[in-house]
Design a protein around this nucleic acid. Structure first.
Length: 798
DNA sequence: AGCACGCCGACT
DNA sequence: GTCGGCGTGCTC
């Protein structure tokens, strides 16, 4: 048999290709991204076909075992996009392929064995033979698991049976037909069940005629009876879309809302570009009705016979958007949600490939949705940080990737935000994206009034450190009028640092303009970007104050204080603790919307786009917290949060008021936020980015090193920098290196961490240089104890 | 990511 | 003396 060679990428390994032999007749059938079962060390794993290979002398090349599926799982369009992503983000292509399919399909399904021949003439242990015979009598398929139990008494039996042609092993992971999700059971009452069971069933019948499995057992019908009823056809399973979001009601009458002039213009501009690549930035103030624009253009795309992919930061917080889309498109929507069960994921993924849905809505990994005919991509709240995936690999920015996917597919991409990412607004102003603006809130809803409270002048009482008297009285007033209140505390990512007690100033790095981290040992302040260290900081550089607060965490207390201060408050807390990693966030928000509570206290989750018409007060407890982050995006992130949270008030007919407590009322950023003036903020911030050559004027690359021992990472990272510089010099590539320095979270999971930032305008040339280097010197010549993670266009600076 | 190989502490 | 802890290295 003639054989040729192919390159295969393997998930979870270093970014390398492995060469395998493949029989000619299989090679003729191979497709881009085809999944192969290959021997890898002592295991067999799934690998992705990358291309033909040369014979590599000196390595014992193994043969591929089989295709996992008869065809590649990826369309040409998706395949090309995945390879682009692996290239741009310096990822292992197999990790990207893996990210693009449901987790269920990432594992080789436990081998099953088809019974080919029932006559066992293989010599073996008598009791094993009996057991096997009874298995084979009942089933045509024997699981690997039951064979394993046989192996215990009769080692090597599996191999013998396969070799003698009695069993055939199968690894197929993809079912050839969609797995239906059983939504419930239909009861047929033309019956042959005994009367008591029928009575129980009869009691279950509801208006819709669908009964859930759990209700059936709750009614006291045993699973034996249940199975019998199904067999008899009295209970018929009804398959369909998983319905975990059925509780989310379609907003009535959205279809008949007439777009205003601005919305109409946006709809017209976008629909004029259907069928070709056209990036749009839909910049609309909070409450200006971006969602209505999305729905109208989506309808036009659907009318042209194509489907729409919609990315949202988090499904659980996308209530408004979902209810609009449900109002427009009913059951043509597929929701890709983290709470889906594995089977449901596979089902949706497969039916999506078959072109069943017109609208796909999902978080960042939905960027890989296998839409059969993709007609447009919408990225809602495009500024949101959760579009960046840091872990696990592949690390990518889904909004940026969406632009690339749109470009490759030749379709429009619409990015919407009230506070566009600086990069996006820069692109819009420089003409790379078309800018569409919505400047008005509809009907009576007015832009909220914003009021700043200076925490230096109006000190909160000692027993209630987060509430000034003004805020307390405003909250009390709102609650007594039966209105609702949202309180926002940006307590995210506290790193140890100091703050002047008199003026609230936190010292910044003179080189990086980023807050310095406080290290108790040696009483020093340190920049985690460039490594700059200063000691003896005993007077505030701003006001000469001599007292500092040493900030850590400890904000749980607020909840207790609220109970004491506001006696008629019914409080809900929404943060990652109470929301339990996003699963329950939508329930908490639903409770608040249903007025089960009148006071919602939370972290950035409360800033997302949900409509609460009865909210009259939004309080920001300490607006400057976010600024103390060692992150060049700190200002942008804080500004966006303030605008977004302010936008939560005054959504209905009740006029809204926003109270921002801050140590820095004079800070231009805070002032801009109070005046809801994005443009002013943008112009200043973009200048600062230009001056420091931060994105969008350059690309950043973060190299993060970790190891068990501190000196091992230190030396490893320093050596890496030297070798990188040595390679950069002759290349003529312009790049600025910052660090390596300890990460703000300098110790995590028992590992010491350091990071090196590279700023460059030539990102593709830079990653190509890395690639060439790694080919030549695997692992970049780092000692094996030092782990390295490479993050292109990073968001996580910690 | 697994899986094996290898080099140090609690058992029969 | 061996079982097994997980640290480290390799997988075409």
């Amino acid at each position: 048999m003639k054989s040729t060679y192919i390159n295969v990428a393997i998930p979870g390994t270093p970014r390398r290709l492995f060469t395998y032999g493949i029989p000619e007749e299989m090679y003729e059938e191979i497709e881009p991204g085809h999944r192969c079962l290959v021997p890898f060390g002592k295991r067999r794993v799934i690998g992705y076909y990358i291309g033909q290979a040369e014979h590599k002398p000196g390595i014992d090349i193994k043969q591929i075992m089989d295709f996992v599926e008869r065809h590649s799982l990826f369309s040409r369009e998706l395949h090309r996009f995945i390879l682009w992503m692996a290239d741009y983000y310096y990822a292992n292509p197999a990790d990207v392929f893996h990210a693009a399919i449901p987790p269920e399909l990432r594992r080789i399904r436990k081998s099953t064995f088809y019974v080919i021949n029932r006559s066992i003439d293989t010599p073996m242990d008598v009791s094993a033979k009996e057991k096997l015979a009874s298995m084979m009598e009942r089933n045509r398929i024997i699981t690997g698991r039951s064979l394993k139990t046989l192996e215990k008494e009769s080692p090597g039996i599996t191999e013998k049976l396969v070799r003698s042609g009695i069993l055939k092993e199968s690894w197929a992971a993809t079912p050839t037909r969609p797995i239906g999700i059983i939504r419930g059971y239909k009861i047929d009452d033309s019956l042959r069940a005994d009367s008591e069971t029928l009575k129980k069933l009869g009691n279950l019948k509801s208006g819709s005629g669908l009964v859930r499995r759990s209700d059936i057992s709750a009614a006291g019908i045993s699973s034996y009876r249940f199975n019998k009823l199904v067999k008899q056809g009295i209970l018929t399973p009804v398959h369909g879309m998983p319905d975990i979001y059925d509780y989310l009601k379609a907003r009535p009458g959205v279809e008949s809302i007439d777009p205003n002039e601005e919305q109409g213009r946006a709809i017209e501009r976008i629909s004029g570009r259907l069928g070709s690549y056209a990036p749009f930035l839909l910049y609309g103030i909070t409450g200006s009705g971006k969602t209505l624009v999305y729905c109208h253009i989506a309808r036009k795309v659907i009318a042209s016979g194509k489907s729409v992919l919609i990315l949202v930061p988090e499904i659980a917080l996308a209530g408004t958007l979902l209810s609009y889309f449900k109002g427009f498109f009913k059951d043509e929507i597929a929701l890709l949600h983290s709470a889906l069960r594995p089977q449901e994921r596979v089902f949706i993924w497969q039916t999506t490939r078959e072109g069943k849905y017109k609208i796909i809505i999902g978080a960042r990994s939905a960027i890989f949705a296998p839409l059969e005919r993709i007609g447009m991509i919408i990225v809602d709240e495009e500024h949101d940080e959760s579009y960046k995936q840091d872990r696990p690999a592949p690390r990518f920015q889904a909004r940026d990737a969406a632009v690339m996917r749109a470009k490759m597919a030749g379709i429009p991409v619409v990015m919407g935000s009230a506070t566009p990412a600086l990069e996006s607004y820069y692109n819009a102003r420089s003409g790379r994206y078309e800018l569409l603006q919505l400047t008005r809130r509809p009907e009576k809803a007015a832009v909220p009034m914003v009021r700043l409270i200076d925490l230096k002048k109006e000190r909160p009482p000692a027993d209630n450190p987060f509430f000034t008297r003004t805020l307390i009285s405003k909250i009390k007033e709102a609650l007594s009028k039966n209105n609702q209140v949202i309180l926002y505390l940006n307590r995210r990512g506290f790193s140890p640092r100091i703050k002047c007690l008199d003026c609230g100033h936190t010292p910044l790095c003179r080189y990086c303009n980023i807050s310095l981290a406080y290290h108790k040992s040696g009483n020093k302040l340190m920049c985690h970007y460039c490594g700059f260290v200063t000691t003896g900081y005993d007077t505030c550089e701003k006001c000469k104050g001599e007292k500092f607060i040493y900030l850590g965490t400890g904000t749980q207390k607020i909840e207790e204080n609220i109970g004491r201060t506001f006696t008629d408050a019914r409080l809900l807390r929404l943060d990652s603790d109470t929301a339990g990693r996003r699963r329950k966030a939508h329930l908490i928000l639903a409770d608040f919307a249903a007025r089960k509570s009148n006071l919602l206290l939370g972290t950035q989750m409360v800033t997302k786009g949900i409509d609460f018409p009865d909210v009259s007060i939004v309080g920001v407890l300490m607006a400057d917290i976010g600024l103390d982050m060692p992150d060049f995006r700190a200002a942008e992130k804080l500004f966006a949060k303030l605008i977004q949270v302010a936008g939560r008030s005054g959504r209905g007919i009740i006029p809204g008021e926003v109270i921002i407590q801050t140590y820095k009322p004079d800070l231009e950023l805070i002032d801009d936020a109070a005046r809801q003036d994005y443009d002013s903020f943008y112009l200043r911030e973009i200048e600062s980015r230009r001056r420091l050559q931060y994105p969008p004027f350059s690309h950043l690359v973060n190299f993060r090193f970790s190891a068990k021992k501190e000196d091992v990472v230190r030396n490893g990272a320093a050596g890496f920098r030297e070798r990188l510089e040595a390679r950069l010099r002759p290349s003529g590539l312009k790049a600025t290196l910052l660090g390596p320095a300890a990460c703000p979270l300098f110790r995590q999971g028992g590992l010491f961490r350091r990071q090196l930032f590279v700023k460059t305008t030539q990102i593709l040339r830079f990653t190509r240089l890395l690639d060439a280097w790694e080919q030549q010197e695997p692992g970049f010549g780092l000692p094996s104890k030092v782990k390295i993670a490479i993050d292109i266009d990073p968001y996580d600076m910690m």
